[in-house]
Design a protein around this nucleic acid. Structure first.
Length: 225
DNA sequence: GCGTGATCATCT
DNA sequence: AGATGATCACGC
């Protein structure tokens, strides 16, 4: 158990010390056992990085580094450097509190400041994947505007109980997708006529097209240095 | 069961 | 091939 970093600089320094390491190497340092690749490894890399960097949020719905307000996201990238998957942000509420606004939403909380750490993905053996160069990101004003708009559109559908209208096709940067152990998971909700019912729990995700934009912008900025 | 960490598998 | 909908593992 490593203490949480005291500053963003310390966090970034820790992250950069991991760059170039394979998962095998980092797991060895932390005395953690590599999972068998593929199906049963979902989420394992993210947890490994949390442990390596001193994240302290656990499973609470708040940024991983609670004192810094920084969220950690590992992101699988192909040989081309492009994200291979969408990025889970947080669970979506099923009952929307009347006072809920973008500014006090969990999505906003988590995306306000993110430490992105690219992870090699692709055909190689799981343990041979290398950790990339992490970088801190905050939404630009333009990105924040789109995120806010997406969030409002999606949260309105939930608040109005219009579950049948909800699809992953909605949202430019943010989308809603199922987030559950399996398809039979149900959550108490209210439908669009105000009648209590049940619905599949969903989560907010960032589209890969958006995270691609984030990574590309970072690389352009880094090249100018 | 719920929220965290995500990726898998199917459809278009 | 890319996006959508479904699923896997862990801690509490």
């Amino acid at each position: 158990m490593i203490a949480p970093p005291a500053s963003e600089v310390e966090l970034l320094t820790r992250a950069h010390a991991l760059a170039g390491l394979t998962l095998d190497a980092l797991a060895g340092q932390l005395e953690e056992i590599l999972p068998t690749a593929g199906l049963h490894a979902k989420g394992w890399i993210g947890t490994l990085l949390e442990n390596a960097l001193g994240a302290d949020a656990g499973a609470r719905p708040m940024p991983d580094f609670t004192q810094l307000g920084v969220e950690l996201k590992s992101i699988p990238v192909g040989a081309d450097g492009q994200p291979r998957e969408s990025t889970f942000v947080c669970t979506a509420p099923v009952i929307v509190p009347p006072a809920m606004q973008w500014e006090n939403s969990t999505v906003h909380d988590k995306l306000r400041r993110v430490l992105w750490i690219p992870i090699e993905s692709g055909a190689q053996k799981f343990g041979a994947r290398r950790i990339g160069w992490g970088f801190l990101w905050s939404p630009t004003p333009e990105q924040d505007t789109v995120l806010r708009y997406d969030w409002q559109e999606l949260i309105d559908l939930i608040a109005l109980g219009q579950w049948t209208q909800i699809t992953a096709r909605l949202g430019r940067y943010l989308q809603l997708r199922p987030k559950a152990a399996h398809g039979r998971t149900l959550r108490a909700a209210v439908d669009d006529s105000g009648t209590p019912n049940q619905t599949l729990p969903r989560g907010f995700y960032l589209r890969a097209t958006f995270t691609h934009e984030i990574l590309a912008a970072h690389l352009r900025a880094a090249h100018r240095q």
